[in-house]
Computed example of a mutant assay.
Amino acid sequence: MPVQTPLVQRLGPAAQRALDLAIALASGVLCWYAAASTSPLLVPEPPWLAVVAGVLFGAPMLIRRRRPVVVAVVIAVVTALVLASGVIPDYASPAPVAVAGVAAYTVGRHVDGSPGVRSILVMMGFLVAGTAFSSGSAESPGLAGIVVALNASGAAWAIGWTLRERHKRAEQAITENTLRAVAEERLRIARDMHDTIGHSLSLIAVKSGVANHVARERPEAVLDALAVIEAESRGALAELRRVVGALRTEPDYTPAPTLADLGRLAGNAESAGVSVRLTVDCAGDLPAPVALTAYRIVQESLTNVVRHAAPASCRVEVETADGTLRISVEDDGTRHSTMTPGGGTGLVGMCERVAAHGGTFSAGPQSGGGFAVVATLPYQDVA
């Protein structure tokens, strides 16, 4: 998630009020001084007129954030009046123009769309008019003063607009990253629930059906089925606690499974009528995420065999070579015509897990019968 830079960070309410007060005082004092510094060669002005000018420039700046358009227009009108009337002489015109620039910046920073553009155009019109009327003598700035006033207000507005757009893009990026992280976490949880709880419930469903079918003819088989159901129920509960614990940011109740637990998966599948031949040939230690992904792929593959092809024989091979872990699960069963309602997400989940590691995945019927799942997971050796 991107971190906001100081240019796009917002000040707190107290800091904003303090800043606005400082700007208002600075604007008032600056324009008061500009109005009070009339050249001795010109007609002297009463002192109270300079005070009025300072108040007219400073007071609106206190509400520049709440009413940026109103403040900008007021400052533009006052600037035009003091320049055209000579209350502030030409040589001191940078003072009111600077205050107008702050107002223009506020419009660009806080007003979006056409209202902001219209207000800045109106503001420029008043500044041009005031500067033009103040430039009636040969010694006055003339066209240069108009250009300076336009450039100052336009540049200030552009800076404010740029910062506003940058802040908006930063907020959009944060929102998008948050939504993406939430979606990825939901997908991860869905995969874990499907792979873990779904595996146990599939075996429970199969063994329950077996027990119900042979209850009268072979009572001893019922006890074996109930033992498997009890073990799988406990395993499913432990996995459910682990997932819920992760959601609550609590320590896991049980450690994540590894390749050493593949034997338990094979035993569970055999208890459901699938003969499993398991081969694990891994040199060195695997990264935990890679080992967990391999475990989930084997788990989901065996679950599919139990659901859709039992009784059958299955060969599971897990081996490493040249920094790549290869998982192969092949069976010789015939897929049942009826599928589990709501099924079909297992293969998608396996493909997503493999893609997250930059590996390859394939799954489909074999030419000689049966079904095969093959995945490769590149990894780096754990030191």
Rank of each mutant, 00 (worst) to 15 (best):
Gly58Ile: 07
Gly284Arg: 07
Gly209Asn: 05
Glu330Gln: 04
Ser114Arg: 15
Ile159Cys: 05
Pro219Ala: 10
Ala35Tyr: 03
Arg296Trp: 05
Ala355Asp: 14
Ser93Gly: 09
Ala310Tyr: 03
Ala211Val: 00
Ser362Gly: 13
Val318Ala: 02
Arg315Gln: 07
Glu232Cys: 02
Arg277Gln: 15
Gly235Glu: 08
Glu176Met: 04
Leu265Met: 03
Leu325Tyr: 01
Gly116His: 04
Val316Gly: 05
Asp252Glu: 12
Tyr33Pro: 00
Ile63Ala: 13
Ser337Cys: 05
Ile146His: 04
Glu176Gln: 07
Glu319Ile: 11
Ser153Cys: 15
Gly154Asn: 10
Val329Lys: 03
Gly349Ser: 14
His336Asp: 11
Gly54Arg: 02
Val374Glu: 14
Gly130Ile: 11
Gly346Leu: 02
His357Arg: 06
Gly349Glu: 10
Cys351Pro: 01
Cys314Asp: 00
Arg65Glu: 14
Gly369Ser: 07
Ala173Leu: 14
Ile23Cys: 09
Thr38Gly: 10
Ser37Ala: 15
Ala149Gly: 10
Arg64Glu: 06
Ser362Ala: 11
Val52Asp: 02
Pro96Gln: 14
Ser208Leu: 12
Arg66Phe: 05
Ala50Gln: 11
Ser208Arg: 01
Val71Lys: 02
Arg66Trp: 06
Ala383Ile: 02
Gly209Ser: 11
Ile229Gln: 00
Ile327Tyr: 03
Glu139Lys: 04
Pro96Arg: 08
Val305Arg: 05
Gly113Gln: 11
Ile63Gln: 09
Ala383Leu: 07
Ala129Arg: 03
Val29Pro: 04
Leu262His: 08
Leu240Gln: 09
Ala260Ser: 15
Gln366Pro: 05
Val102Leu: 15
Asp90Arg: 07
Asp281Gln: 15
Val318Pro: 02
Ala158Ser: 05
Phe361Leu: 07
Asp281Ala: 15
Arg218Met: 01
Trp161Cys: 00
Arg186Ile: 10
Gly154Phe: 14
Gly108Leu: 03
Thr254Ile: 12
Ala173Trp: 05
Leu302Phe: 04
Thr196Val: 02
Leu49Pro: 02
Ser137His: 12
Tyr253Val: 12
Val111Trp: 08
Gly368Asp: 14
Gly145Asn: 07
Ala291Ser: 15
Met193Gln: 12
Thr79Phe: 03
Ala104His: 05
Leu121Asp: 03
Ala98Phe: 14
Asp281Val: 13
Arg277Asp: 15
Arg241Val: 01
Phe57Asn: 02
Leu223Asn: 01
Pro46Gln: 13
Ser140Phe: 00
Gly136Trp: 12
Asp381Glu: 13
Pro257Tyr: 11
Thr162Ile: 06
Arg242Ala: 08
Gly160Ala: 03
Glu185Leu: 12
Leu83Pro: 07
Glu232Ala: 01
Asp224Trp: 00
Thr249Ile: 06
Pro341Met: 06
Ser135Ala: 10
Ile204Val: 13
Gly101Asp: 08
Glu217Arg: 12
Arg307Trp: 00
Glu220Asn: 00
Ser200Thr: 10
Ser119Asn: 09
Ser137Tyr: 10
Ala22Lys: 08
Arg307Thr: 04
Val82Phe: 12
Cys282Ala: 14
Trp48Tyr: 14
Gly145Gln: 09
Gly267Cys: 03
Gln172Leu: 12
Thr376Arg: 04
Leu187Trp: 12
Asn177Trp: 13
Gly136Cys: 02
Ser200Phe: 09
Ala53His: 04
Pro2Val: 09
Ala294Trp: 13
Leu237Val: 06
Ser114Thr: 13
Asp332Ala: 04
Val70Cys: 04
